[in-house]
Every structure is written in structure tokens, then in C-alpha cells.
């Protein structure tokens, strides 16, 4: 296997909220890498901590333990101002709900250009306008739209504005937090195609956060399945669909809707019960069971998973 260049490394990330008895461990010791030009997907249910991981990478949440490396530099914890502004420029986010993530009272040119203004990137007003129009055209919107308000657009167009806002900063890495969950099926396809296009043309890397494995199958190169703040399985997309090992992954796979009435009617979702694991004697570890395929298990479970391979 060729040594690949990791753009983002998350090492033993732990995030907790609250103190004392109200303390909640939202992310527990999570590690993964995102390679250059790769789409890595985190999949899990609401409350599993996937959004928290994304927010912690861009320093919106504080990391309690572990560290995050971007381009081989530590970007978590206390960092210099320069590095901070680099992180802001190079890592951008796309949010779930295009109805809620755009400022209703600002015009599109301000929404898209705000990052440029704050980072002081553009020398002149003209340069700013040019970059905003170029970004709008990139996502398939007309430059004239710059003087309109968000409410004048449909859901799909609004999500494009959200993408233009991320792209205008010329990032290397985009965290897309459920970018298509709130969209109609026909518009989902357009947004997914758009994200793939930028990956091809600009070598962008993505952290794609989702709850539906069927969507991720199309877009992701590798998938990390997360449950209760822990990574339970991590694998190449195709292999994960062929040989899911962890019972929670199986649960997710069987829960995803299948657009085929014959199969859908005979489907029985595998229910995941977190108490089915017996971890009283031995704690589970995220272990590489075959090349590039990691699963959370103790040695006894690992034995049985190996037989399944």
C-alpha cells in the first residue's frame, strides 16, 4: 500500500460537556485520519457525537484530551494567531439546514463574502466582489443573485449559497455536517454531484457527517461508524458494505431504506442493544482486523469477527 498523505489527523479526541454530576462525555478517545483528496464519512445516530467531532476540529468546542493535526501542525488547544487564521481559512463548514444557517437579514454577497472580509483577505472592494461572483458561479448560481436575500431562494439554492460561502475561502478541507438531510431527494443528487465535482477539480478533502449509510455509500471513500461517542468500526466504503462486523454497523445498514418493494418488505432490521457486549472482564479496543478495517472489540469478540470475515 502506498503511504498516503494525511491532511487531518484526529488523535485520541475526547470532549466533555458540563461538570460534576452533569458531566457528559460526548466524544470518547476518537482517532482517525483524513487523507488528501479523500471523503471520509462519520456515520451515527443523533447524539452519537459526530457533530461535536466536526465542531471540535474547527475549534468551536474545546478539546479535553488528545489533539488534532492539520497539515502536520497541531491545531487544537492553545495555538498562535497565525495558525488560527490559517485554520479558519483552510477548514470550512457546510451546515445541515439551509433555512437556518444563512443570516436572513444579510444579502447573499455579504453572507458569502463575510469570511473574506473578516480575514482581511481582499485588498479592494472590487476583488471581494469578483471572488464572491466567481464562487456563486462555481456552485451554479448567477452572480446577480448577490444582491438578493436568502428568503428569495429555494432550499436547494440556499444550500448552494452555503457551499459558495465555504468555497470562497479557497479551503483545503470541508466539514459537511449532514448537508443533504434537510433537502428533497431530487435536490440531494445535485448537491452530492457538486461536492464530488469540487473534490475532483480542486482536490478538496471532506469530512462528511451523516446518519444515513445509503447516502454515504455513494460519496465516501472511507466510513467511520460512531456510537455513543466512540468509533465502533472504520473501513473502506465498499468493504464495509460487504462485511460489516460490529452489530451497530449491521443495525445501521439494515435500517437504511431500500428502494425495492420486494426486498424492503422482507427486510428485518437487526436491532442493536449496547448491553449485548460483555465488557466486564476485558475492555474493548479499536483493533485492525484486516488491512484498513478497524473494529471496536475485545479479544473474544475479535475471534468471532475473524471467523465472519
Amino acid at each position: 500500500m502506498i503511504e498516503r498523505n494525511a491532511l487531518l489527523k484526529v488523535e485520541n479526541m475526547s470532549v466533555t460537556f458540563g461538570t460534576g454530576r452533569k458531566r457528559v462525555e460526548a466524544v470518547k478517545n476518537v482517532s482517525f485520519e483524513v487523507f488528501r483528496g479523500e471523503t471520509f464519512s462519520l456515520v451515527g445516530e443523533s447524539g452519537s457525537g459526530k457533530t461535536t467531532i466536526g465542531r471540535t476540529i474547527v475549534r468551536l468546542n474545546q478539546i479535553n484530551n488528545g489533539r488534532v493535526l492539520f497539515d502536520d501542525k497541531v491545531i487544537s488547544g492553545k495555538i498562535s494567531r497565525e495558525l488560527q487564521s490559517k485554520v479558519v481559512r483552510k477548514i470550512q463548514m457546510i451546515f445541515q439546514d439551509p433555512m437556518a444557517s444563512l443570516n436572513d437579514r444579510a444579502k447573499v454577497d455579504y453572507i458569502v463574502g463575510e469570511g473574506l472580509i473578516n480575514a482581511g483577505i481582499c485588498k479592494s472592494k472590487q476583488e471581494l466582489n469578483e471572488r464572491v461572483s466567481r464562487s456563486l458561479m462555481d456552485v451554479g448560481l448567477l452572480p446577480e443573485f448577490a444582491s438578493r436575500f436568502p428568503h428569495e431562494f429555494s432550499g436547494g439554492q440556499r444550500q448552494r449559497i452555503g457551499i459558495a460561502r465555504a468555497l470562497v475561502m479557497e479551503p483545503e478541507f470541508i466539514i459537511a455536517d449532514e448537508p443533504i438531510s434537510a433537502l428533497d431527494v431530487s435536490i440531494r443528487a445535485q448537491v452530492l454531484n457538486l461536492l464530488n465535482k469540487f473534490k475532483r477539480e480542486r482536490g478538496l478533502s471532506y469530512l462528511f457527517i451523516a446518519h444515513d449509510l445509503s447516502v454515504v455509500k455513494f460519496i465516501a471513500d472511507r466510513i467511520g461508524v460512531i456510537y455513543g461517542g466512540q468509533l465502533v468500526e472504520l473501513c473502506y466504503t465498499q468493504r464495509l458494505f460487504e462485511k460489516p462486523l460490529h452489530p451497530y454497523t449491521k443495525n445501521l445498514l439494515t435500517a437504511a431504506p431500500i428502494p425495492d418493494p420486494r426486498r424492503a418488505r422482507n427486510r428485518s432490521a437487526i436491532v442493536y442493544d449496547p448491553t449485548q457486549h460483555d465488557y466486564s472482564k476485558e475492555r474493548p479496543l479499536l483493533t485492525e482486523i484486516e488491512q484498513g478495517h478497524l473494529v471496536l472489540a475485545n479479544s473474544k469478540e475479535l475471534e468471532s469477527y475473524k471467523r465472519d470475515l
Binding site: V185, S186, A189, N193, S214, K217, F218, I219, P259, D260
Partner: peptide, 28 residues
């Protein structure tokens, strides 16, 4: 699902990400 006749039904079915092939654009 198996014998759709209207082009709109074709389009709705084809644009499902479940039918996506890696490296190719989804039907839109």
C-alpha cells in the same frame, strides 16, 4: 418501481443516491 412509465417517476427513482456509482455523477 419495476415498470414505471412516466419520465418524472424515472427521474425520481434514478436520482436516489442508492443507485449512485462511485466516480460518476448522480442522475439529477
Amino acid at each position: 418501481f419495476f415498470d414505471p412509465r412516466h419520465p418524472y417517476t424515472w427521474a425520481l427513482l434514478s436520482s436516489l443516491p442508492q443507485f449512485g456509482e462511485k466516480g460518476k455523477d448522480l442522475y439529477t
